[in-house]
Nucleic acid binder design. Structure first.
Lengths: 135, 135
DNA sequence: TTCTTTGCAAAGCGTTTGCACTAGA
DNA sequence: TCTAGTGCAAACGCTTTGCAAAGAA
């Protein structure tokens, strides 16, 4: 494997992701980084997101929406996708290692990890619907 | 919503999926159905797969591979993706409703369900590697 | 200097869609 | 007959890639 060299673009992408609680798409990352490096290209954003994810510095979220999302928090946790507004939120509190262990007990291959996506309705959409009904 | 009419193509797609344990991509479904209906188009396959999935008659698996896969078994269960050969297997035995309930306890919106994808190495790839090492 | 990363633009690939035609009810 | 479904081909949207120039070590 080739030696990794520093790049200010990659650092900016990493910093941007670590500092947020939402889960931006590649395009959202691109827009944000362009405010610091106006010449950055979408290709560079994709290359760095893929690189960072492969190194475990960020997490790639492929939950069946049209585009992937990225998460700067690397602690074991899960995600919930609002079927109404598309927002992706973090969900802590489920024991990820226990889930892997339970699966390993039912499987004759090896299990390295998992991705768990919940689908539902976020608090905001839930309340908006409630206020529509009550008038 | 428009009334649903019977279509022999859709029935063939459904029957094909229900009869298998692997998890074909749209393209694999297309190839298979073309042996019965040589004129079927890829667009029709996609339209019917989307329709069947939206009706809950099949399950769409979006586990981050380049293309989605489809599953004719609709009982609650999970999937495991082999990182080596890309094969997707069913995994039964984990209590899906319990997972939803645990998540609901940590979330202030509503949870309707989830998709849980394990990543690892299937039995076949595991054994192939072992026999390579021992010679 | 040497090798990695970048910007740009084009290509790739899975999926969706518009339209005229076919077929189910 | 009336409307939903089909086949075809073009378009779409996200992502990847080839290449020459720029930048890190």
């Amino acid at each position: 494997m080739a030696t990794l060299k520093y790049s200010r673009q990659r650092e900016a992408i990493k910093n941007y992701l670590v500092g947020r609680l939402d889960h931006p798409t590649a395009d959202m990352v691109y827009s944000a980084i362009r405010e610091i490096y106006p010449n950055i290209s979408l290709g560079t954003v994709y290359r760095n997101l893929t690189l960072l994810a492969s190194q475990g510095e960020i997490i790639k979220i492929s939950c069946g929406q049209n585009s992937d999302r990225f998460d700067g928090r690397t602690e074991l946790h899960h995600h919930i996708v609002c079927e109404k507004c598309g927002q992706v939120e973090d969900l802590f509190g489920l024991n990820a290692q226990m889930i892997d262990q339970m699966a390993a007990g039912n499987y004759d291959g090896d299990i390295y990890g998992h991705q768990l996506y919940f689908y539902g309705k976020c608090k905001k959409c839930k309340e908006e619907e409630k206020s529509l009904k009550t008038g």
